[in-house]
């Protein structure tokens, strides 16, 4: 890879964007990191990273930050469970993506990697989902719906000749800050502090866990080897809640008694939380559409990324061990 390339990254304070900036900087690129607040505590610090105050909803800030760049990574998104103004999901995830693509055209960017999510597929049935599989249910979760609409937007631009590669990470965990949008970090950190005490339902439901370093490398590989308009699932191992907390107990050395809470109980609680948020505007701890998801598996296959991009998966036990150590030391 040629060094000293200027590369634009949106979402530099986000879980993926932050690590991606650091890796690009380490490889000798000059990173143009877009952030709404250049004093944000989670921003990555490196001599090759230049911060540009901006917002994907403010078009003019994008062109300025992209000036002189050849590549764009668009990782910025509203990935929270809940937002006071529901329209924010559409604005940030769809309109914001359109702004980034428009700016990329103006700045003659050669190639863009767009960070989508496995949430565009959502729940799975028997076997892990791959890229050509259909979505089974509707889109009750705002984040998933707007990320899906953003993918449609991206494909429209690809048809008109823009070079965009889509990557779809699954549930990302790893050595990063404990943020609102990152549920795995919240579970691990809560468990270590003795505050996380529940396993949803039987604990047998499976989700796919992607290690942050793998996902970051997957982004770089997609930039290098990806095909325009194609999607690549960047996942990891399919793990049940029971396996997850089993591994967490074993690797951290903290054995805590966890309680299985039946999904209907969680659902009832989430309904109360939804009502609470509707009445008070306070963020809910949980919402019914997420409670429903606890009944379904979310298994994804990274085979396409492995064969076409050279994507590699860190074993879950090793990734989790590093995550635990990171959270303990920070």
């Amino acid at each position: 890879m040629t060094t000293e390339q200027h590369v634009f990254v949106s979402g530099a304070s986000g879980f993926i964007g932050r690590s991606l900036c650091l890796e690009l900087a380490r490889r000798g690129h000059i990173v143009h990191a877009l952030c709404r607040n250049i004093t944000h505590p989670f921003l990555p610090q490196h001599n090759n990273i230049r911060f540009f105050r901006g917002d994907i909803l403010e078009k003019e800030t994008l062109s300025a930050a992209m000036e002189g760049c050849v590549q764009v990574y668009h990782t910025a998104a509203l990935a929270k469970m809940w937002c006071k103004n529901t329209d924010d999901f559409y604005q940030v995830n769809v309109t914001g993506t359109r702004h980034v693509l428009e700016a990329a055209v103006r700045q003659n960017i050669h190639r863009i990697v767009y960070t989508s999510t496995c949430g565009v597929w959502g729940p799975t049935v028997k076997y892990p989902m791959s890229e050509d599989d259909p979505r089974i249910g509707g889109f009750p979760i705002h984040y998933e719906r707007t990320k899906y609409l953003a993918e449609l937007e991206v494909r429209k631009w690809v048809q008109s000749g823009l070079d965009v590669v889509i990557v779809n990470p699954s549930r990302v965990y790893g050595e990063g800050p404990v943020t609102d949008s990152n549920t795995v970090s919240k579970m691990v950190s809560g468990y270590l502090k003795g505050r996380w005490r529940v396993i949803p339902g039987t604990g047998e439901n499976v989700a796919n866990y992607a290690f942050l370093d793998d996902v970051v490398q997957g982004h770089l590989k997609a930039m290098l080897h990806g095909e325009a308009g194609e999607r690549y699932i960047l996942g990891g191992e399919d793990i049940s809640f029971n396996q997850f907390f089993g591994a967490l107990a074993r690797l951290s050395g903290h054995k805590r008694r966890l309680f299985h809470v039946p999904v209907p109980v969680i659902k009832a609680y989430s309904r109360f939380e939804k009502l609470k948020s509707a009445l008070t505007g306070l963020p809910p701890h949980f919402l019914p559409e997420f409670a429903d998801r606890l009944n379904a598996d979310q298994k994804y296959s990274s085979t396409k990324a492995i064969t076409r991009l050279g994507y590699q998966i860190t074993p879950f036990a090793e990734g989790l061990k590093r995550t635990i150590e990171h959270i303990q030391n920070h």
Partner: peptide, 22 residues
């Protein structure tokens, strides 16, 4: 998708009465 966008602007009872296809 067009309906997902259009329904998005609805509020109150109109928004609450819209169901998921499943």
């Amino acid at each position: 998708p067009e309906l997902l966008v259009m329904n998005h602007s609805l509020k109150g009872i109109s928004a609450a009465s819209i169901l998921e296809p499943d």
